[in-house]
Design a protein around this nucleic acid. Structure first.
Length: 409
RNA sequence: GCGGUCGUAGCUCAGCUGGUAGAGCGCCAGGUUGUGGUCUUGGAUGUCGCGGGUUCGAGCCCCGUCGAUCGCCCCA
């Protein structure tokens, strides 16, 4: 055992450029979501385990083997949230908001999944998300996707990211389709990969996005959901595509897209990229018309998505979009006796809304070196008699200024 | 949960077929009489991820373990 403590497996510190990217993702997403009418919701980081076991479906790996569940001192089974959609639906019900629909919720925060860590995949990771609760109209599907696309664009990472979309249909369509798939794959069972043989029993739809070469060849000839859609489901999907065109969101239809969590129906979509290795999905979601009912509320058709903040931040880094650190003004007292007037000047700058700092020690030369290393934009030199010199550190020019004249700088 | 690769100063890395560690950057202090980004001189820093084994001797070999990473699985 090392005496040096490390962050727990799958967790990490975000400091400096990492923190700035993370904040940029949250701030940008929050701002853009606001333009679409989404208000931020804060739901608890841990919930009654049933919120997730009920909502996500126990066939999903997330519920079956990836949750951080524990019993608290009172004997309650609690779980660190592995995602936030179930919590938002629970909150909608608990707060009686089913009486005032639709609701548009935005969230950003940590989620927890016990997975094998990889680049862009952590045990504590962070998601942003947008949910429209209480709107069955396809316009809602399109709007929530449009918000996501604008966030991706605003982050400067749209290049290399593409929206893939599909429909899972309603329950009737899905059951019919599932039966057709099972029939098809069962007939070719011996050609399926080992993984897909178990999928065939557990979740046949997942065979559609298998990475195995033999599976993919089989999938080529597999039946499409299109043939099994009810008239209503087909109309909904067609309308979503039409509205997305209206919103100006480019897309690629992909009949192989499925969703990992059980609560999805109708629209399913993913913003994918080939720049993150195995973690190609950057933002994903769909319609979930039954989830609020699972939480004890009335039938409340809803649609939304979640995005991995670490993955978005990684794309920002690749795209050279890391925000620069703020540039302070360095206040530099020239001699011990200049400290008092320097403090006055320092606070005058801060009161005027200027980012200003004064080193805790060092002679004039050291302080200027430090100012330079901090990438300070200017140094305010303070003489012992209180005289002020404004030195522009980019241009190298220096002019006398007065205490009252600092506000404009 | 499965398979592969990797783990040496704060950072990026070097270290030949095993003989008790180096560079660059960074950091600290100077280059005399208060003004940075260049230049220059000097200095500090590592139980070579951790534990065990083989060996006269291991950073280099073996085993285990922790962590990162790539792929699978899963998913954001």
């Amino acid at each position: 055992m090392s005496s040096k403590l490390q962050p727990a497996r799958g967790t990490r510190d975000m400091i400096g450029a990492d923190a700035r990217r993370h904040n940029a993702v949250a701030d940008t997403a929050r701002r853009i979501a606001g333009l679409y009418g989404f208000e931020e919701w804060f739901t608890p980081i841990f919930e009654d385990t049933r919120v997730f076991s009920r909502g996500l479906g126990d066939t999903s790996d997330v519920v079956a083997k990836e949750m951080y569940s524990f019993e608290d001192r009172g004997g309650e089974s609690l779980t660190l949230r592995p995602e936030n959609t179930a919590g938002v639906c629970r909150a909608l019900v608990t707060n009686g908001l089913t009486q005032s629909l639709p609701q548009k919720a935005f969230y950003a925060g940590p989620m927890f999944r016990y997975e094998r860590p990889q680049k862009g995949r952590y045990r504590q990771f962070h998601q942003i998300g947008c949910e429209i609760l209480g709107a069955a109209e396809p316009l809602a599907d399109a709007e929530v996707i449009a918000a996501g696309w604008q966030i991706i664009q605003s982050l400067g990472i749209a290049e290399g990211v593409v929206l893939e979309i599909n429909t899972l249909g309603d329950a009737e369509s899905r059951d019919a389709y599932r039966a057709a798939l099972v029939a098809y794959f069962s007939a070719h069972a011996e050609q399926l990969s080992a993984d897909s043989k178990t999928r065939l029993e557990k979740n046949p739809l997942r065979i559609l996005d298998s990475k195995d070469a033999a599976d993919r060849a089989l999938v080529e000839g597999a039946p499409l959901i299109t043939a099994h859609l009810t008239a209503g489901a087909a109309a909904h999907y067609a309308a979503v595509l039409r509205y997305l065109q209206g919103f100006g969101v480019p897309l690629r239809e992909n009949p192989r897209i499925v969703r990992g969590l059980d609560y999805y129906s109708h629209t399913a979509f993913e913003f994918v990229t080939d720049r993150l290795g195995a973690q190609g999905t950057v933002m994903a979601g769909g319609r979930y018309d039954g989830l609020v009912e699972e939480m004890g509320g009335p039938p409340t058709p809803s649609v939304g998505w979640a995005a991995g903040m670490e993955r978005l931040a990684l794309l920002m880094e690749d795209a050279g979009r890391t925000p620069a650190a703020a540039r302070p003004v360095a206040v530099v007292p020239m001699g011990d006796a200049a400290e008092a007037p320097a403090l006055a000047a320092l606070q005058a700058l801060r009161a005027a809304g200027t980012h200003a700092e004064m080193a805790y020690r060092g002679n004039l030369k050291r302080r200027l070196e430090r100012a330079n290393k901090q990438n300070a934009r200017a140094a305010l030199l303070v003489a012992e008699d209180g005289g002020l010199q404004w030195k522009d550190l980019d241009a190298g020019t220096q002019v006398a200024v007065s205490l009252g004249g600092l506000a404009g700088l």
